[in-house]
Amino acid sequence: MNNTACPHGPASWAKPLLLGVVAISLVSGVLGGLARLGVAPSSIDGAVWLNHALLWHAGLMICGFLGTVIGIERAVAVKRPMAFLAPLLSGAAGLCFIAGYAMLASALLVAAASLFVAVNVVIVRRQRAAHTVLLLVAALAWLIGNLHFAFDATSPATLSWWFSFLVLTIAAERLEMTRLMRRHPAAQPSFFAAVALLLAGAAASAVSPVGGGVLFGTALTLLATWLVVFDIARRTVFAAGLPRYMAACLLGGYLWLAVAGVAWAAMVLGAPTRDIAWHALGLGFVISMVMGHAPVILPAVARVKLLFGRPFYVPLLALHLSLALRLGPGAFDTTLRAAGASMNALTLVWFAATVVGGIAAWRWLHRGPVVTPLKEKPR
């Protein structure tokens, strides 16, 4: 029997388990980030696991959380039970980070990324297109980043490759959507030129952190410019309903991607813009994309129905405003930076509650009438 069609196959137990692991990595990563700024809740302040989460904040957020989420989405798309091994391993790596076993976590991440590359090879074989090849390149970027982390956790190239994985995954999905539009002849060549520059910057960061970082930051800004000019979001923002909301998420994210590019180049040149570079990219760009795609991807992955409505705009606006506070005035005032970071965390909780509310609202609106079976009259 095909396990993908069997309700008791590997995927049936893997997805609930993975969603729990994803939640643990996300919550721990967020609390670890807050602890870095001295904003940990007093009830857990000083806990051993929180110290681990503080130390491995980036690994938890990028690999334990986002890497696992992307792995789940790809496993569902490929429809092969073995594909769930990749997110299972990256999810386990997140738990190892929290427990303080960073060396084991690094080994699990290398294994997870290797399997994830294999999953993307299957996808390319099924559909040989520019965007699927780019998804494979993104998977390879994650593997290279994990190898850097395994051999030298302090390597400046690790974050460049990890962020390349996220940026290229998102860019590939947007490249696929541009096929619905009439594209300028220079659109695709300029896109792949920016991608090549991004990969060159990540690779060069291992031997020349300054030169590679400048290339990497420049590529981020060029990709942001390309997305603003050519992405279908600049048209769908004038639509209504979910397409307009998604476009708002995307366009806002592209602006933060441009900010991250400038801040990244300034950071490697010695400017105090590290928080701006990392969190304009990780929160402003990546989480904006997550918010935009969640109402579409979550129902497909978790097999639930979700009612979209205007309340989804509230956490989106809160994300941008809190991030502007953190990276604007907060860049010069530690108190404002901590306040902005706390609001960032609350925004994620708010968005999760909005999603749960959307699921509950759909179920309430589509509840069936209670039917009482008729009793047969005694003869």
Rank of each mutant, 00 (worst) to 15 (best):
I144C: 07
L348Q: 10
A93V: 06
L346F: 05
L348Y: 09
H8F: 14
A93N: 05
L115A: 09
M82H: 07
M61H: 04
G212C: 10
F216W: 14
L298C: 02
A300P: 02
A112E: 08
V121R: 12
V228M: 13
Q127V: 09
V229H: 03
L365C: 05
V122Y: 13
S90T: 08
W56A: 11
L269S: 15
G261Y: 14
M82L: 12
A258H: 14
H52E: 11
L159F: 11
V119N: 10
L220S: 01
W350E: 09
T221H: 08
S90M: 05
L17C: 14
R182E: 08
P315H: 10
R367G: 03
L348E: 05
G368M: 12
I24D: 05
A171W: 01
L222H: 15
W264V: 11
I44K: 00
S42Y: 00
T347I: 08
A318K: 00
A239H: 10
V355G: 03
V48K: 06
L319F: 02
T178D: 00
A361S: 11
A5Y: 12
A107Y: 15
G20Q: 11
G33D: 15
W13D: 04
A338R: 06
F351P: 01
G201L: 03
A75D: 02
T4C: 03
A345S: 12
A260M: 06
A280N: 02
W56N: 07
A157V: 04
N51I: 04
K15Y: 06
L31G: 01
V133I: 07
I72Q: 00
M289Q: 14
L95Y: 07
V304M: 04
L227S: 14
L317T: 15
A112N: 10
S288T: 11
W226N: 06
L37D: 15
S288K: 10
F165V: 02
M291F: 15
G38F: 00
R326Q: 11
A240E: 12
G213Q: 09
A219V: 09
R128G: 06
L327H: 08
L198K: 11
V124C: 11
V355P: 02
F216P: 00
L175C: 08
S155Y: 06
T4K: 01
A280P: 00
G100V: 01
L251M: 06
P81K: 01
L327P: 08
A219D: 15
S106R: 11
V48H: 05
F192A: 04
A102R: 09
S90V: 00
G253I: 02
W256I: 03
R303S: 07
S322F: 00
A338T: 13
L198I: 04
V370L: 14
V137Q: 00
P41Q: 12
G212V: 05
T158K: 06
L134D: 07
L166T: 03
N344T: 01
T4D: 08
A219K: 13
G9V: 03
L60M: 11
R367A: 05
P209L: 12
P87D: 09
M246N: 01
A23E: 08
V76G: 03
L115I: 15
V21H: 04
L60C: 04
L108C: 05
R274P: 07
R234H: 14
L115H: 06
A300M: 10
F332Y: 13
I123R: 03
S322E: 08
G20L: 09
G330D: 03
L199M: 15
G270E: 14
A5E: 07
K15W: 06
V371L: 13
H8A: 15
